[in-house]
C-alpha cells in the first residue's frame, strides 16, 4: 500500500457515495454528525468566565469528534463495506488502497474538522480568548485525526463484523477516555496516564489554546513558550500515530475472513 498514491477525482466520487450511505442510515448519521456537535453546547452552558471549564469543553468536543465521526464511523463503514465485498471489488478497479481509506474517512474527517474549527468562534463569542497558538492547535487536531483514522483501520483488521465493532473498539476508547479522567488521579499514576493519546491530546489543547501549563488552569504560558511546553505531549501523540499507522499497514484486511 502506497500511502500517498491518491487521486482527488476518485476520492471525491467514492466519498460522495459514502456520504450518501452515512446519510441514509439514521443511527450512523446521528453518531457521525449529530453527536460530535453536542459537546460544543458545553461551551454554552459552562461558566463563561472560567477558562478551565472552556478548556474541558474544547477537549471533550475534540475527543468526541475524533471518536465518533472519525474512529467509530470509519471502523463501522470499513467493516460493513468489507463484509459486502465492496472493498474487494473496488480494489479490482483503478482505485488505490489509499483512495479507498481516505474516501471512507473523509465524511467523518470533515465533521471533525468542522467541529474543531467551530469551537473557535463559539468560544470567542462567549468571551474566551482565541487560541494562543492557532498553528499548534491545528497541528493537534490533524495529528489526532490521523491517529484515529489509523486506529480505525487497525481495529477493523481484527473486527469480524459490524456488530463486533462495539466490543473491539473498547480498547481504543478506554485509551482515550483514560487520559481525560486522569486529571483526578494522583501524580504517580498520572505519570503513566500522560502517555496515553487522550492525555496528550488534552494537554496539547490546554497548551495551544489556553496557555495552561501541565496540571494548571491558569494561563501562564506566552505564545513563545507554548511550543516548548507542547514538546512532550506532541511527541507522545505523534508516537501513537506512528505506531497506529504501522499496526494498520501491517494488519490491513480487505475481504471477510472465509
Amino acid at each position: 500500500m502506497t500511502l500517498l498514491d491518491i487521486s482527488p477525482h476518485r476520492i471525491a466520487g467514492l466519498a460522495r457515495a459514502n456520504v450518501t450511505l452515512v446519510a441514509r442510515n439514521r443511527l450512523t448519521f446521528i453518531y457521525a454528525v449529530v453527536l460530535p456537535l453536542l459537546p460544543l453546547g458545553l461551551l454554552l452552558v459552562g461558566d463563561n468566565n472560567s477558562s478551565g471549564a472552556a478548556a474541558n469543553a474544547v477537549v471533550t468536543a475534540l475527543m468526541m469528534a475524533a471518536l465518533f465521526p472519525v474512529y467509530a464511523n470509519l471502523l463501522s463503514q470499513f467493516v460493513t463495506r468489507r463484509d459486502e465485498l465492496v472493498l474487494k471489488r473496488l480494489r479490482t478497479g483503478e482505485s488505490t488502497d489509499a483512495d479507498i481509506i481516505v474516501s471512507l474517512a473523509l465524511p467523518g474527517l470533515v465533521v471533525a474538522l468542522t467541529t474543531s474549527a467551530l469551537a473557535v468562534p463559539i468560544a470567542v463569542v462567549l468571551g474566551q480568548d482565541p487560541p494562543l497558538n492557532p498553528l499548534l492547535y491545528g497541528l493537534t487536531v490533524v495529528v489526532t485525526l490521523l491517529l484515529f483514522v489509523a486506529f480505525a483501520c487497525w481495529t477493523a483488521a481484527w473486527t469480524r463484523n459490524a456488530e463486533a465493532a462495539q466490543l473491539t473498539s473498547m480498547p481504543v476508547i478506554v485509551l482515550v477516555v483514560l487520559g481525560q479522567v486522569a486529571t483526578a488521579f494522583p501524580d504517580n499514576v498520572r505519570r503513566w496516564t500522560d502517555l496515553t493519546p487522550g492525555a496528550a491530546m488534552a494537554d496539547l489543547v490546554r497548551v495551544s489554546w489556553f496557555g495552561f501549563e501541565t496540571g494548571s488552569t491558569d494561563q501562564t504560558l506566552a505564545f513563545s513558550d507554548s511550543w516548548a511546553a507542547a514538546g512532550e505531549p506532541l511527541l507522545v501523540l505523534t508516537a501513537w500515530a506512528v505506531l497506529a499507522v504501522f499496526l494498520a499497514r501491517r494488519s490491513m484486511r480487505w475481504e471477510p475472513r472465509s
Binding site: 477525482h9 476518485r10 471525491a12 466520487g13 467514492l14 460522495r16 457515495a17 450518501t20 450511505l21 441514509r24 442510515n25 463495506r81 459486502e84 465485498l85 465492496v86 472493498l87 474487494k88 471489488r89 473496488l90 478497479g93 483503478e94 482505485s95 483512495d99
Partner: peptide, 20 residues
C-alpha cells in the same frame, strides 16, 4: 458481486464510474 446495499443501481454505477 460487491456493492453497498443502500445505494441505488444508478448511484453504484456512478460511484464506479467516478473511479475510472
Amino acid at each position: 458481486s460487491g456493492f453497498p446495499a443502500d445505494l441505488t443501481v444508478a448511484e453504484a454505477l456512478r460511484m464506479w464510474a467516478s473511479t475510472m
